[in-house]
């Protein structure tokens, strides 16, 4: 279980997160929604160790990981995607996927010099299977920088599958996608990504949230205003107020 306890974070005078506490249940997909500027991405940046926290505590399966660096958190099995897609643009699609796997290994000297781009390497096989799941098998030799936006998003998810983490933090995975692409993404998350893993999904597209999330958490102005079953949360007056304004 990923647990955030009384997290505070400010940038200068701007208080982005105000003593926010959230429990993210293991093994299910939790949605994180809130108006623009409510602190969603900051929360994910804190959970993945990219921003240090000002005060509070972060627990992963009961272990205190507050203050851990992003590479340390990543080694504990937490992986994330980015709202503004980050891929290694000057590597091919298959190299991008392999890059998520080489970092898995404990680095023995042999591991260092193991031929990652050798076609007989078992990692290439795994990467090719993942590409088939993502319906990208014809793109494996393309350079990631030449991919279209939806394919870049797919590549990010392919990397998640290659990494095989316990916890996945999605930051707007359907950003810039058409409704049809969003639907196939939802299908993919339900079928290949979510089972057996803990997921947190930040998203503005409610059709994706409705399709993949079993639990929903709403934040506004850096505070949690609701958490629970999506159908219940959507009907809470605070949530309606945050999205539609006061009547």
């Amino acid at each position: 279980m990923f647990e955030l306890i009384k997290i505070c974070k400010s940038f200068g005078n701007l208080r982005v997160l105000k003593s926010i506490s959230i429990k993210i249940k293991s093994g299910i997909v939790t949605g994180l929604i809130g108006p623009n500027g409510s602190g969603k991405t900051s929360l994910v940046n804190i959970m993945s160790g990219i921003y240090p926290i000002d005060s509070g505590q972060i627990l992963l399966d009961g272990n205190d990981i507050s203050g851990a660096k992003s590479y340390q958190i990543s080694r504990l099995g937490v992986f994330r995607t980015f709202q503004h897609i980050r891929i290694f643009e000057r590597m091919t699609v298959i190299e991008n996927i392999i890059s998520a796997m080489i970092s898995h290994e404990s680095f023995s000297f042999y591991g260092f010099l193991a031929q990652v781009r050798n076609p007989e390497d078992p990692k290439v096989n795994i990467a090719q299977n993942i590409l088939e799941i993502m319906e990208m098998e014809n793109d494996s030799n393309l350079f990631a920088g030449d991919l279209s936006l939806p394919k870049r998003r797919r590549l990010e998810i392919a990397r998640v599958l290659a990494r095989d983490p316990k916890v996945i933090l999605f930051d707007e995975p359907a950003g810039g996608m058409t409704p049809k692409e969003t639907e196939s993404l939802a299908h993919l998350i339900n079928k290949n990504v979510a089972p057996g893993r803990t997921c947190l999904v930040i998203e503005h597209k409610m059709d994706l949230i409705a399709k993949v999330c079993e639990e929903l958490c709403v934040i506004n102005h850096g505070e949690k205003i609701a958490q629970g079953d999506p159908s219940v949360v959507f009907n809470q007056p605070e949530v309606i107020e945050a999205y539609l304004g006061k009547v």
């Binding site: 660096k69 290694f88 260092f112 990652v116 781009r117």
Partner: peptide, 26 residues
């Protein structure tokens, strides 16, 4: 080195250090 994991890590760092950290590499 360039064809090894080490070479790939060099190029990962060269292209996006933050993403490299997210991959568990310091």
């Amino acid at each position: 080195i360039e064809r090894s994991g080490l070479g790939m890590i060099f190029r990962m760092i060269g292209q996006d250090p933050m993403l490299t950290r997210v991959h568990g590499i310091n």
